[in-house]
């Protein structure tokens, strides 16, 4: 994995926004739509932040984005998410003590991440027993966004080999 960044983030003025001040700020024509979506995935979702955090971390560990793996969102902590629970969002989660709804959400994420062409109507039937259609849609867009953004972060280089866990707020609008 490239540890040297392949682009230079925009110079001043800094905005204080985690996305606008990053290399993503260089592609100005895509920037505001990306900022808006990343914000809304947390702020407007019909799914609780703790479950979104689990989906985000499942993606981060699948893509192996070091920064994404080390990030924790404060809204998820306030929703009751603990490090002990997040440690279960790993291979073998199906045999963990996560609840049925959480395991199902992670199975949905894995289908998207690993083999989208093998999604089954059976999975949809089980999803509909636990989630509303809107919640399924919100989870789908959240997983898709996390996947796209984490792959961007890895592809642009500059990824540290490891870093400690840190807490931040979701991106503002």
């Amino acid at each position: 994995m490239a540890t040297k960044s392949r682009v230079t983030a925009p110079s001043s003025p800094k905005t204080g926004h985690v996305i606008r001040d990053s290399a993503f700020g260089l592609a100005a024509d895509l920037l505001e739509p990306v900022v808006r979506l990343t914000h809304l995935n947390w702020a407007a979702s019909s799914v609780n932040p703790g479950l979104i955090e689990m989906l985000r971390l499942r993606n981060a560990r699948t893509v192996n984005c070091v920064i994404c793996k080390s990030t924790r969102y404060d809204v998820a902590h306030r929703d009751g998410t603990t490090e002990e629970k997040l440690a279960l969002v790993d291979d073998g989660y199906q045999n963990s003590n996560l609840d049925r709804r959480e395991k199902l959400a992670l199975e949905f994420a894995d289908t998207y991440l690993q083999d989208p062409d093998r999604a089954s109507p059976d999975l949809m039937a089980r999803l509909r027993q636990e989630f509303s259609p809107r919640q399924i849609g919100d989870m789908a867009v959240a997983i898709a966004t996390f996947h796209a953004m984490s792959r961007c972060a890895v592809g642009l280089g500059g990824m540290p080999e490891n870093m400690p866990v840190f807490i931040m707020s979701p991106p503002s609008a």
């Binding site: 392949r6 682009v7 230079t8 290399a23 993503f24 260089l26 592609a27 100005a28 024509d29 895509l30 990306v34 289908t111 998207y112 989208p116 062409d117 093998r118 999604a119 089954s120 109507p121 999975l123 949809m124 999803l127 789908a140 867009v141 898709a144 966004t145 996947h147 796209a148 953004m149 792959r151 961007c152 592809g155 642009l156």
Partner: peptide, 27 residues
């Protein structure tokens, strides 16, 4: 540099829509 960032973001979100279309068509 802007072109590289744009390309990698574009590929990410194009890939996202292709994956979601595959998933939702099959679901």
């Amino acid at each position: 540099d802007a072109g590289l960032v744009c390309l990698i973001e574009a590929l990410g979100f194009i890939d996202a829509r292709i994956r979601l279309a595959l998933v939702f068509n099959r679901l």
